[in-house]
């Protein structure tokens, strides 16, 4: 579904964020990327939908070369790729409904988007997406009036309205409390599992990675240093291996969900 072939990324200021990445992500996978701050996780994610251009190498999504795509082809590919963010990035001065409907912009001509007139079918898609993340009752609220967890659910609904094949999540729970964290992660997991949406999520907490991922990839200084399926290792071994990624042992008090899960 997603393939990186010898991908490197050097930012215009000379920072080498990624170095010769090779990675193949299967359809339906829930892949979690972990790594220290500055390791290159966000960069890796943004190369998938080309929010930033690659420097060298190829990124292939659903059989299409993303690194050379542009214009309408690129926009049509992005439409298939939902993305949610640490800071939610919903439009705060619009209603929840308008936000979720904006997930449909990739399907319509510009004039329609600019006028903001959506067909009734789109509204049904939006309502269903909101229902799915259990926030339909806020449909007419202003987005800025919602709590962080609710805003993130609206962001998920917006991505669902795209009817995507892939879901990217850049630290989706980093600004949420433990209870809300579990709730949002559960929604992502459920969507991945029941719709077969390939999910790639950057997470800061190894216990979340252990609990939700079907596969964990560790990035360190722009390189992949770890690649393992939680189903094929023990939790203790997994925690111990994290030293490879973080360069130091991980302690129990760095877990977020212990108290929330029990």
């Amino acid at each position: 579904m997603i393939e990186f072939k010898n991908v490197s990324k050097v930012y215009p200021n000379g920072v080498k964020a990624l170095n010769n990445i090779n990675l193949f992500i299967d359809k339906g996978e829930f892949l979690v990327i972990i790594g220290l701050s500055g390791a290159g996780k966000s960069t890796l994610l943004r190369l998938i939908n080309q929010l930033i251009p690659v420097s060298t190498g190829q990124v292939i999504v659903d059989g299409v070369r993303m690194d050379t795509a542009s214009g309408k082809i690129l926009r049509n590919m992005r439409r298939k790729i939902g993305m949610i963010f640490q800071s939610f990035n919903i439009v705060k001065r619009m209603s929840v409904l308008s936000n979720v409907l904006s997930g449909r912009v990739g399907y319509h001509p510009t004039w329609r988007n600019v006028l903001g007139i959506y067909p009734e079918d789109d509204k049904q898609i939006a309502y269903k997406a909101l229902q799915r993340v259990d926030i339909l009752e806020k449909v007419h609220n202003r987005a800025s009036d919602l709590s962080g967890g609710q805003q993130q659910r609206v962001a998920i609904a917006r991505a669902l309205a795209q009817q995507p094949l892939i879901m990217l999540a850049d630290e989706p729970v980093a600004s949420l409390d433990p209870i809300t964290t579990v709730q949002v992660m559960d929604f992502l997991k459920e969507i991945c599992a029941s719709d077969g949406i390939t999910t790639v999520a950057n997470l800061h907490h190894v216990d979340l990675a252990w609990k939700y991922a079907t596969r964990v990839v560790g990035v360190r200084a722009g390189e992949i240093v770890y690649d393992q399926r939680p189903s094929q290792t023990t939790k203790n071994q997994f925690i111990k291996d994290m030293e490879i990624v973080y360069g130091r042992p991980i302690h129990h008090d760095e877990f977020v969900i212990e108290e929330a899960v029990v």
Partner: peptide
């Protein structure tokens, strides 16, 4: 960035 990621021009 979010809007770009949706495929908006």
């Amino acid at each position: 960035e979010a809007l770009r990621s949706l495929g908006a021009d």
